[in-house]
Protein backbone atom coordinates (compact mmCIF):
# COMPACT_ATOMS: atom_id res chain seq x y z
CA UNK A 1 0.00 0.00 0.00
CA UNK A 2 1.33 3.43 -0.91
CA UNK A 3 2.16 5.92 1.84
CA UNK A 4 3.29 9.51 1.40
CA UNK A 5 4.71 11.46 4.28
CA UNK A 6 7.21 14.13 5.13
CA UNK A 7 10.32 13.04 7.00
CA UNK A 8 12.70 15.71 8.24
CA UNK A 9 11.24 18.12 5.73
CA UNK A 10 11.60 15.75 2.78
CA UNK A 11 8.53 14.33 1.00
CA UNK A 12 8.73 10.56 0.63
CA UNK A 13 6.42 8.07 -1.01
CA UNK A 14 6.83 4.36 -0.62
CA UNK A 15 4.99 1.10 -1.07
CA UNK A 16 4.71 -0.76 2.24
CA UNK A 17 3.00 -3.82 3.63
CA UNK A 18 0.30 -2.68 6.07
CA UNK A 19 2.05 -4.50 8.91
CA UNK A 20 5.24 -2.45 8.50
CA UNK A 21 5.90 -0.62 11.73
CA UNK A 22 6.77 3.05 11.41
CA UNK A 23 10.19 2.40 12.98
CA UNK A 24 11.03 -0.25 10.37
CA UNK A 25 9.82 2.06 7.62
CA UNK A 26 12.14 4.77 8.91
CA UNK A 27 15.13 2.48 9.35
CA UNK A 28 14.79 0.04 6.48
CA UNK A 29 12.93 1.93 3.76
CA UNK A 30 14.41 5.36 4.39
CA UNK A 31 17.73 4.09 5.82
CA UNK A 32 17.54 6.57 8.69
CA UNK A 33 19.05 4.35 11.35
CA UNK A 34 19.41 6.94 14.11
CA UNK A 35 15.97 5.89 15.38
CA UNK A 36 16.64 2.74 17.37
CA UNK A 37 14.74 -0.46 18.01
CA UNK A 38 15.17 -1.35 21.66
CA UNK A 39 12.47 -3.48 23.22
CA UNK A 40 9.79 -3.62 20.52
CA UNK A 41 7.16 -3.76 23.25
CA UNK A 42 6.54 -0.06 23.68
CA UNK A 43 8.38 0.29 26.98
CA UNK A 44 11.88 1.54 26.17
CA UNK A 45 11.31 4.61 23.99
CA UNK A 46 14.49 4.18 21.89
CA UNK A 47 12.28 4.46 18.80
CA UNK A 48 10.75 7.82 19.77
CA UNK A 49 10.13 10.22 16.87
CA UNK A 50 7.83 13.20 16.47
CA UNK A 51 4.64 12.67 14.47
CA UNK A 52 2.92 15.96 13.68
CA UNK A 53 4.88 17.59 16.48
CA UNK A 54 4.15 15.01 19.17
CA UNK A 55 6.55 12.43 20.59
CA UNK A 56 5.41 8.89 19.81
CA UNK A 57 6.93 5.44 19.90
CA UNK A 58 7.42 4.49 16.27
CA UNK A 59 7.40 0.77 17.14
CA UNK A 60 3.79 1.14 18.23
CA UNK A 61 2.42 2.66 15.07
CA UNK A 62 2.02 1.24 11.58
CA UNK A 63 3.58 3.21 8.73
CA UNK A 64 0.17 3.27 7.02
CA UNK A 65 -1.26 5.09 10.04
CA UNK A 66 1.33 7.83 9.46
CA UNK A 67 0.26 8.41 5.85
CA UNK A 68 0.25 12.19 5.32
CA UNK A 69 2.03 12.92 8.59
CA UNK A 70 4.99 15.16 9.25
CA UNK A 71 7.75 13.09 10.90
CA UNK A 72 10.84 14.38 12.67
CA UNK A 73 13.63 11.94 13.51
CA UNK A 74 16.95 12.46 15.28
CA UNK A 75 18.59 13.05 11.88
CA UNK A 76 16.42 16.13 11.42
CA UNK A 77 16.97 18.01 14.67
CA UNK A 78 20.39 19.62 14.03
CA UNK A 79 20.61 22.68 11.84
CA UNK A 80 23.29 21.54 9.39
CA UNK A 81 26.43 21.48 11.52
CA UNK A 82 24.90 23.26 14.49
CA UNK A 83 23.63 20.87 17.12
CA UNK A 84 20.16 21.30 18.57
CA UNK A 85 20.46 22.68 22.15
CA UNK A 86 19.36 19.29 23.50
CA UNK A 87 22.06 17.49 21.51
CA UNK A 88 24.54 20.09 22.75
CA UNK A 89 23.33 19.48 26.31
CA UNK A 90 23.89 15.73 26.05
CA UNK A 91 27.39 16.46 24.71
CA UNK A 92 28.29 19.07 27.33
CA UNK A 93 26.85 17.26 30.35
CA UNK A 94 27.77 13.69 29.42
CA UNK A 95 24.14 12.63 29.04
CA UNK A 96 25.09 9.32 27.47
CA UNK A 97 27.34 6.35 27.94
CA UNK A 98 26.59 3.62 25.39
CA UNK A 99 24.33 5.98 23.46
CA UNK A 100 21.66 3.47 22.48
CA UNK A 101 18.80 5.29 24.21
CA UNK A 102 20.09 8.73 23.25
CA UNK A 103 18.14 9.41 20.03
CA UNK A 104 14.87 8.58 21.79
CA UNK A 105 15.88 10.51 24.90
CA UNK A 106 16.65 13.55 22.79
CA UNK A 107 13.36 13.37 20.89
CA UNK A 108 11.41 13.11 24.17
CA UNK A 109 13.43 15.92 25.73
CA UNK A 110 12.81 18.19 22.74
CA UNK A 111 9.06 17.52 22.99
CA UNK A 112 9.19 18.31 26.70
CA UNK A 113 11.06 21.58 26.19
CA UNK A 114 8.86 22.65 23.26
CA UNK A 115 5.94 22.54 25.71
CA UNK A 116 7.76 23.83 28.80
CA UNK A 117 10.95 25.88 28.74
CA UNK A 118 11.22 25.99 32.54
CA UNK A 119 10.73 22.40 33.66
CA UNK A 120 11.53 21.44 37.24
CA UNK A 121 13.74 18.41 37.80
CA UNK A 122 10.60 16.39 38.60
CA UNK A 123 8.96 17.53 35.37
CA UNK A 124 12.06 16.51 33.42
CA UNK A 125 12.07 13.09 35.04
CA UNK A 126 8.37 12.63 34.22
CA UNK A 127 8.95 13.99 30.72
CA UNK A 128 11.45 11.23 29.96
CA UNK A 129 9.70 8.45 31.85
CA UNK A 130 8.84 6.73 28.58
CA UNK A 131 12.54 6.31 27.82
CA UNK A 132 14.74 3.75 29.51
CA UNK A 133 18.47 4.21 29.96
CA UNK A 134 20.42 1.27 31.38
CA UNK A 135 23.77 3.08 31.71
CA UNK A 136 23.53 6.48 33.26
CA UNK A 137 21.05 6.27 36.09
CA UNK A 138 19.46 9.32 34.41
CA UNK A 139 21.39 11.84 36.51
CA UNK A 140 23.42 13.34 33.68
CA UNK A 141 20.46 13.10 31.31
CA UNK A 142 18.51 15.38 33.62
CA UNK A 143 21.49 17.75 33.77
CA UNK A 144 21.68 17.69 29.95
CA UNK A 145 18.03 18.67 29.64
CA UNK A 146 18.53 21.44 32.22
CA UNK A 147 21.46 22.69 30.15
CA UNK A 148 19.32 22.67 26.99
CA UNK A 149 16.42 24.39 28.74
CA UNK A 150 18.72 27.23 29.78
CA UNK A 151 20.13 27.56 26.25
CA UNK A 152 16.64 27.57 24.74
CA UNK A 153 15.64 30.33 27.19
CA UNK A 154 18.69 32.30 26.08
CA UNK A 155 20.35 31.94 29.49
CA UNK A 156 23.75 30.75 30.68
CA UNK A 157 23.49 27.00 31.47
CA UNK A 158 24.14 25.96 35.08
CA UNK A 159 27.74 24.81 35.72
CA UNK A 160 28.42 21.08 35.48
CA UNK A 161 28.25 19.01 38.68
CA UNK A 162 31.96 18.27 38.51
CA UNK A 163 32.80 21.98 38.81
CA UNK A 164 30.58 22.70 41.79
Amino acid sequence: MEVSLTVNGRAVTSDVEPRTLLVHFIREHLRLTGTHVGCETGYCGACTVHVDGKAVKSCTMFAVQADGADILTIEGVANDDVLHPVQEGFWERHGLQCGFCTPGMIMSSIALLEANRTPTETEIRHGIEGNLCRCTGYHNIVRSVQYAAAVMRGEEPPPPDWET
Binding site: G45, T48, T60, M61, S108, E129, G130
Partner: peptide, 9 residues
Protein backbone atom coordinates in the same frame (compact mmCIF):
# COMPACT_ATOMS: atom_id res chain seq x y z
CA UNK B 1 -1.31 6.22 31.88
CA UNK B 2 1.91 4.82 30.44
CA UNK B 3 4.22 7.70 29.60
CA UNK B 4 4.08 10.89 27.49
CA UNK B 5 4.49 9.07 24.16
CA UNK B 6 1.77 6.58 25.00
CA UNK B 7 -0.57 9.36 26.14
CA UNK B 8 -0.02 11.20 22.86
CA UNK B 9 -1.32 8.28 20.77
Amino acid sequence: IGDPQVRNR
